[in-house]
Design a protein around this nucleic acid. Structure first.
Lengths: 249, 249
DNA sequence: CCCGCCGTTTGACGCAAGTCAATGTGCTTA
DNA sequence: TAAGCACATTGACTTGCGTCAAACGGCGGG
């Protein structure tokens, strides 16, 4: 699997930290598949890490972990999609990212979860106890390096998102979102134009700092202008060049 | 010096990465002072790190490094203040953070700078070659741990900033900015109510996703409502409780 | 098969913040 | 001391996006 980091991707993937969950099924022959850290590991280390892991499944809407709860686990997503968000006391919500297969939850290795995470679709993830994972890291400095580089990449994406939220118009935000999500799906399923949208318009709005109505209006307009086609559970990109122009850094 | 991380601070401090500069003065008896990483180091390690360092001074407006340039240095700020920002092709600007004394520039240890950095006031910084610093890290895994934990903290602040930019009103943004900056100055000079503002209203606007005029109007309104007093190069906080209520997570 | 629910779309209208423009104010330089 | 400049403030007006409300469409359960 290619995990090389390419330029110009956004839609913040997997970040922060994680934990306490309510799994549905537990698979005994769990594998450390699609693990973004593999690149830094020798086969025997991979085997060792594999023994620490546990495969979990979550149904759509199920919570992986909640903000401010103690983070006793870290996860690696193997299938499905997860939304990561923060809540304000009055109910306003800010989605800080979406996690796709291959993404890592718990990069920060901190004591408490910094946001909520719940499954958008049926999801499977590889779970590690944070303690065991931390011990493993202590023994493998090169793995820590890799973890740090992934966290830095997240930081960079978060800063790009700050530009989007602070200085871009509604249309530019939606375009940047679609292009960013396309680039991330490409690394999962290789498809270049069919962008799956497992999240609702509300989720997209809460990610982009817009309302549902605005997201819907912008998308219909882009469709009317032959820039995209709206299809069941996703979007087909027609005029990628135009979208990239709208989204350009 | 107390470098313990306290809850509820924002106004993203020092992050990302750094490099190629045009120093004015070079001080030979440079010290690794105010270095956020000290906590993780033994005296002999500190001495070793000290020998790798070099003290630089920058005048106000001077550039520390520019976006997309190769990052061959990392810095630790010892005095002054620095603004960190990204530019859009059409000139729109997003300030991603302000660095204060004690802050580290180059947490990401990446190949290229992810933003521009320039001095707001006369500034001194402790410089390390990225290569030498990286080698030092390889030899001291516990230092890498600390670096990673600092980067994670940055990530968390960036996510808080996403909430501010995506879901808060102009007044809430300004309140959150003032409270966040107060908490950061407190760790530098211990002052609880006198908040220095080395940046212009334009910089604050570009950080909060607002225009100069809006920042100015909100601040005069807060002053009229006896919430703050505007003083030369800063602000005195009168009603901290009210500001914290406006800024609450 | 129909009903109710949830997410989406569309329209009419309002407002928070942006834009444009003028004035104020303190610094620096001549 | 005055001129020039950069930053800050204030007012009048505009607008992009939010709000409110209604209708649409697909899906799952009775």
């Amino acid at each position: 699997m290619d995990v090389t980091v390419t330029k110009a991707e956004a839609v913040s993937p997997a970040l922060g930290l994680c934990s306490n969950s309510k799994p549905q099924i537990e698979c005994s022959q769990c594998r450390v598949r699609a693990l973004s850290l593999c690149a830094a590991l020798e086969p025997d280390e991979l085997h060792e890490l594999d023994k620490l892991s546990q495969t979990l499944s979550f149904s759509a809407r199920q919570t992986l972990f909640e903000q401010d709860q103690p983070a006793d686990s870290v996860y690696n997503l193997t299938a499905g999609a997860v939304r990561l968000y923060k809540l304000l006391p009055d109910g306003r919500r800010q989605v800080v990212g979406f996690a796709l297969p291959g993404d890592f939850l718990g990069l920060a290795m901190s004591e408490r979860n910094m946001f909520c995470a719940d499954a958008l679709t049926p999801t499977t993830a590889c779970r590690f106890s944070r303690e065991a994972y931390s011990d493993f890291l202590d023994a493998k400095p090169h793995l820590l390096r890799r973890l740090h580089s992934m966290a830095s990449h997240e930081l960079s994406l978060a800063q790009d998102q700050m530009v989007i939220l602070g200085r871009r118009t509604a249309e530019e935000r939606v375009a940047a979102f679609l292009i960013g999500l396309r680039n991330r799906w490409m690394r999962v399923n290789g498809n270049h134009v069919h962008v799956l949208l497992p999240m609702t318009r509300q989720d997209i709005g809460d990610f982009l700092g817009l309302t549902v109505e605005t997201v819907s209006r912008i998308m219909t307009r882009l469709a009317r202008e032959k820039c995209i086609v709206i299809v069941p559970d996703g979007v087909r990109l027609l005029d990628v060049a135009r979208l990239e122009r709208l989204a350009e850094v």
